[in-house]
Structures are given as structure tokens and as C-alpha cells.
Design a protein around this nucleic acid. Structure first.
Lengths: 106, 106
DNA sequence: ACTTACGGTAAGCCATGAGTTACATAGATA
DNA sequence: TATCTATGTAACTCATGGCTTACCGTAAGT
């Protein structure tokens, strides 16, 4: 399973995306993250594990607490994958808007 | 279920991402897309339905064939969501690097 | 009109995954 | 040491989703 696979699978879950958004305002411990979520703390722990293995967050020990933060490196491949389409899709869109000419592509 | 939800859920499946990549080279009919995939044609039909409802592809009738193409508009929200983190995450990363500089000993 | 090509839909099977509770482990504190 | 706090893990349940086969509708060709 590639990094792209893991990253997309990780972000497919709405709760995990909310965790990411919560971490966007700065590193936080598990308890802080779990507070305000409608699910249990163990559930958040499991979500954080998925995000970590996808390279989207990093964690460090701080006493008995575990502080998680967004890992900028993990977002790169995602953006790259999307950007691969960006150009192509816009080109196709542009070509379509300008009117269908002969498809002279070799 | 928001567009972001649908878009991420749609792209979470590897087969659907491969469909997107295949469409990146230009619009194609269902049969053309299904050819070369290890799954059945109905499966591809179902995947295309998910992608369409997520706004990631558009379809038009062409005789008895149904031609699908990438919908550039659908990719926007995804990129926007990722970009929301881009700045914040890089800032956090920067701050962390500068803050840890004195206590970090390789 | 009959037939063929193309593709969407229904029903069922099975694997995966998100959630729960209960328990285990490590560091801080009295 | 005893214990409290903070978090990870195990075992289980239940819903979801991807795949298959079978079938149906529609457009084109004869």
C-alpha cells in the first residue's frame, strides 16, 4: 500500500479530517483533541494511529502526554497527485470551451 | 454529506483513482475505461456513478455510448481543503524547527 | 421488426473499518 | 510504594462498500 493510498484512505473519514483541522491550529495532546468530539477517546487514538501511519501527523512524547502535530511532508504527495490532474483537466476544459476542433493528437 | 466528503470518499478507492488517471488522457466511454481493469464493467459503472455524484467527472451521451470526462470544477474544493493546511502546517513546522534548534543535538 | 451493442441497475456475498467497553502500560505525584 | 493521570491496545459488534452475476432499457444496424 503506497503513501498515496494511505493518505487518501486516511482523509476519507470525516472525523479524521476534523482531527486534521483541529491540529491546524497547533500541536495538541490526545485528550485535547478528543474533547469536543462526539466519539470516545480510544476512537480518536485509533484515528491518530491511521493518520500517523499515513504520514499526515507526527507525534512526540511529553511526559505522560502524547502531542500530535501535522506533518507537512505528508501533504505533499496528495497535492502532487491532484496537481497532476489540474493541468490536464484544465487543458481539456479549455479545449472543450474553445470548441471541438479536429483531434490532431498523434 | 458535503462535496468535500463525497470527493474524499470517492478518491479513497484505488480503482476510482485509476479511473481518474485514465480519464486524464482524455474523455472515454465506459467500455474503454473498463478495458484493462481487473474488475467487471458493472463495477466500473458503479465507480463512475460515485465519481459523478462527487462532481469529479461529467458524462454525456454519444449514441449508445456514454462518454465520461474529468470535471475540473470538482477538483477545486479538494485543492482548497489541502491548501488550508499548507500554510498553517508549514508555519508550525518552521516554528518547531527554530524552537528546537538549541535543544536538538544530532 | 429483430438483433446487437452498450451501459445502467438490482440483489446478494463478503471483507473492511469505525465505534464501543475493558484492560494494559508508562510517567508524574503523594 | 501506592496511585493517579494520560494514552495505547484488544476484542467485539455492526454498518458500509466493493465485487459479482443476472437482468433491463435504449440506440443503432440489418
Amino acid at each position: 500500500m503506497s503513501y498515496i493510498d494511505k493518505a487518501f484512505a486516511a482523509l476519507a473519514d470525516p472525523t479524521r479530517r476534523r482531527v486534521m483541522e483541529r491540529l491546524a491550529s497547533g500541536p495538541k495532546a490526545v485528550g485535547e483533541i478528543a474533547a469536543g468530539f462526539p466519539v470516545s477517546r480510544p476512537a480518536i487514538s485509533q484515528h491518530l494511529k491511521v493518520l500517523r501511519e499515513a504520514g499526515l501527523v507526527a507525534d512526540r512524547a511529553e511526559g505522560t502526554r502524547r502531542v500530535y502535530s501535522i506533518d507537512p511532508e505528508g501533504l505533499g504527495p496528495l497535492r502532487a497527485w491532484l496537481d497532476r490532474f489540474w493541468g490536464v483537466a484544465l487543458d481539456a476544459f479549455q479545449a472543450e470551451v474553445e470548441g471541438d476542433r479536429e483531434e490532431d493528437e498523434p
